[in-house]
C-alpha cells in the first residue's frame, strides 16, 4: 500500500480503516474537500458535484451527518465516494471485509464501484489470500 501511495502519488485514493474521514467535517464536506482543494473549486461548483456523487449512492440523507454517526456500510461508501473525487483516481480498497465486518461477499462493493463511472478511474482491492472465495468467480 505504501509503495502504491509513493508510485501513484497524484492518483492514490485509499479506502482503508487506517485512513479515516475527518471527524469535524460533515459527510458532504469530507467528500467535497478533495476537489475543492485539488481543483480549486468554488462553493457552488463543489456543491453541485458533491450532491451528484452522493445521489449515485443514494446517500443524500446522510450528507450533513458526522462520520461518527454513520454505520459501517455508510462509512465505507462515503470513503469510497471521497476516493473517487481524485482526478483519474486509483482507488485502493484495503481489506474491505475488515472495514465492514458483516459483509459476506464482494458483490455489494462491486455494485457500488460500477456506479463510479468517472473517466480514468481504476480500483485495486488488497486483501488476505484466504478471503479469495468471498470475491466470487473473478477473484481479486
Amino acid at each position: 500500500m505504501m509503495e502504491l501511495a509513493t508510485a501513484e502519488k497524484g492518483r492514490y485514493a485509499p479506502v482503508s480503516a487506517d485512513i479515516p474521514l475527518l471527524s469535524n467535517l460533515s459527510v458532504f464536506r469530507n467528500i467535497a474537500l478533495i476537489r475543492q482543494y485539488h481543483e480549486r473549486l468554488g462553493r457552488e461548483e463543489s456543491h453541485r458535484l458533491t450532491t451528484e456523487a452522493l445521489e449515485r449512492f443514494g446517500l443524500c440523507g446522510i450528507a450533513e451527518k458526522r462520520p461518527y454517526d454513520l454505520s459501517e456500510r455508510d462509512l465505507f461508501l462515503v470513503k469510497l465516494l471521497r476516493a473517487a473525487q481524485r482526478k483519474e483516481a486509483l482507488i485502493v480498497i484495503d481489506r474491505p471485509f475488515v472495514q465492514i465486518a458483516g459483509l459476506r461477499s464482494f458483490e455489494w462493493i462491486r455494485k457500488h464501484l460500477e456506479l463510479l463511472d468517472f473517466p480514468g478511474i481504476d480500483a485495486i482491492i488488497l486483501d488476505y489470500e484466504w478471503n479469495g472465495e468471498r470475491y466470487g468467480s473473478d477473484g481479486a
Binding site: 501511495a5 492514490y12 485514493a13 485509499p14 479515516p20 475527518l22 471527524s23 474537500l33 478533495i34 481524485r86
Partner: peptide
C-alpha cells in the same frame, strides 16, 4: 486524520 489528508495529497 492528518495522515488521511496527506494520503489524499492535501
Amino acid at each position: 486524520e492528518l495522515d488521511a489528508l496527506e494520503a489524499f495529497g492535501v
